[in-house]
Computed example of a mutant assay.
Amino acid sequence: MLEPTSDNTAIVLILVLTVLCAIWLEKNTKTFEKIGAAALSILIGMLLSNVGVIPGESVVYDFFRGPGVLAGITLFLLTVDLASIRQAGGPMLKAFLLGACGAAFGGAAMGFLFVDAIGPDTWKLSGQFAATYIGGGVNFAAVGQALDTSSEYFTAGVAADVIVTAIWLIACITIPEFFGKRDPQIESSTLGKPVEGADAKSAIGSLLYSSGKPITLRDLAMLMSIVMVCMWLSRLISTWVPIIPMIIWLTTLVLVLAQFRVVKNLSGALVLGNYLLLLFLATNGAVSVIARIIEIGPAIFYFALGTVLIHGVIIFGVGIMLKIDSTVIAIASQANIGGASSAMAIAGARGVPNLILPGIAVGLLGTALGNYVGLLLANVMKIFIG
């Protein structure tokens, strides 16, 4: 008899079913629609692990948290058209950059505050939390892998990130309600072409859940070739120039390739990247054994919460002083904290589908920017507290 707690095939089966369940719940239930498949994948994985259906450790998890997530990151970055970032418009881009500064400042401040409570990996967590709160959870994994963060702190950090991100998602849905009437400017074309009704759903689907056109065998072959070449080449270059981490070479190579028309025309990169990301998140849920997190202590949770609160004070406080609409700020904040998918969720929840594309644009910018800022901050913090 095959036991899920020891059989790798059974573990993979449960993980893919976890992602399928999360997607179904998001698409078919109003309650879980706002939570999103990303958070649901983590929560279901965490539940299954903590009740003993799947183990807290497995070589399967090592794959999805290593090569698997790197492939997902590569596929996501292949969709970043640097020229199209201008679609985000001045207000959205300003709010996003404010949020990025807030995340970096928050990561540094929490590092100094919790260095005694956490210990030698504190400088790494400063970089990881700054990175993840600039462009979403993919960056936490990328920077953590580059810095070789210890598994127990990585696991606790993921769990803290899940909880804090969920709390902030709710906050970003409700905060704009306290700032009065919506600015008419957010309906203008300067923030992106308005999308309404069925077209809004189509726009969302074409970005993360559907390629919008058939995915051909050639597309898949090209995408997999690009992913493997970039991963191999970036690892090779990092051995020649070890002072620069592999993830920086990978990010740079992919962003350069993403600007070529032949790559832009490939179908399915974002869908495949999103699927790998969901598997990665389900895996992180599985390794988030609550007993182990409690054993480490609450300091990492407070680290994550403090980073997000500082981000929130800066992005909403300064943003409102600059007269940026609170809904635009909320979407930009979620692009920072949860990535492109969270920005989409807020745009839908706030009833502004015309801001879906701008939100995704800055979310993808955050995915690209977060790795650079996170690694830079970590190495600066290492000088002071390492």
Rank of each mutant, 00 (worst) to 15 (best):
T190M: 14
M228F: 13
L220P: 05
A200H: 06
V229T: 15
A200V: 06
L207W: 02
K193N: 10
I215M: 12
W232D: 13
Q185R: 09
G192K: 04
G205W: 04
M222G: 00
L191D: 06
T216C: 04
S211Q: 11
A198S: 13
S211T: 02
E196R: 08
A203P: 00
Q185Y: 11
I204P: 04
I215N: 02
W232P: 10
S189T: 15
L207R: 01
D199A: 14
A221T: 02
E187N: 12
G197I: 08
A200M: 09
M231L: 15
I226Y: 12
G205M: 04
W232F: 15
M224E: 03
L207I: 05
T216N: 03
G212R: 00
R218Y: 07
C230Q: 12
G192D: 02
E196N: 10
L223Y: 12
Q185W: 02
S206K: 11
C230P: 10
T216R: 08
G197R: 05
L207C: 06
V195I: 07
D199N: 12
P194V: 08
C230H: 11
S210V: 05
A203F: 04
A221H: 04
Y209S: 00
S188F: 14
G192L: 07
V227P: 05
I226Q: 08
M228Q: 13
D199Q: 09
Q185V: 14
W232C: 15
W232Q: 14
K193Y: 08
P194Q: 09
T190K: 13
E187G: 12
A200Y: 05
G192W: 10
I215S: 11
C230F: 12
V195E: 06
Y209H: 04
V195W: 05
S225Q: 13
E196C: 04
C230I: 14
T190W: 07
L207V: 07
G197E: 07
A203C: 03
K193S: 12
A221G: 03
I215C: 03
L208C: 00
K201C: 01
I215Y: 06
S211P: 12
L217P: 00
L223D: 05
G192R: 11
I215L: 06
M222W: 01
S206V: 01
S188L: 15
I226D: 01
T190L: 13
P194L: 14
I204K: 06
K213D: 03
S211E: 09
I226R: 00
L207D: 00
K213C: 03
P214Q: 06
A200L: 01
Y209G: 02
A198G: 05
S189A: 15
L217F: 12
W232T: 13
A198E: 06
Q185S: 11
P214D: 13
L191G: 13
L208K: 02
T216K: 08
S206E: 02
P194I: 07
Q185G: 01
I204Y: 02
I186F: 10
S188Y: 11
D199R: 10
G192A: 03
L217C: 08
L208S: 05
L220N: 05
I186R: 13
V195C: 11
K201E: 09
E196S: 07
T190C: 05
L217H: 07
T216V: 01
I204F: 01
V195Y: 01
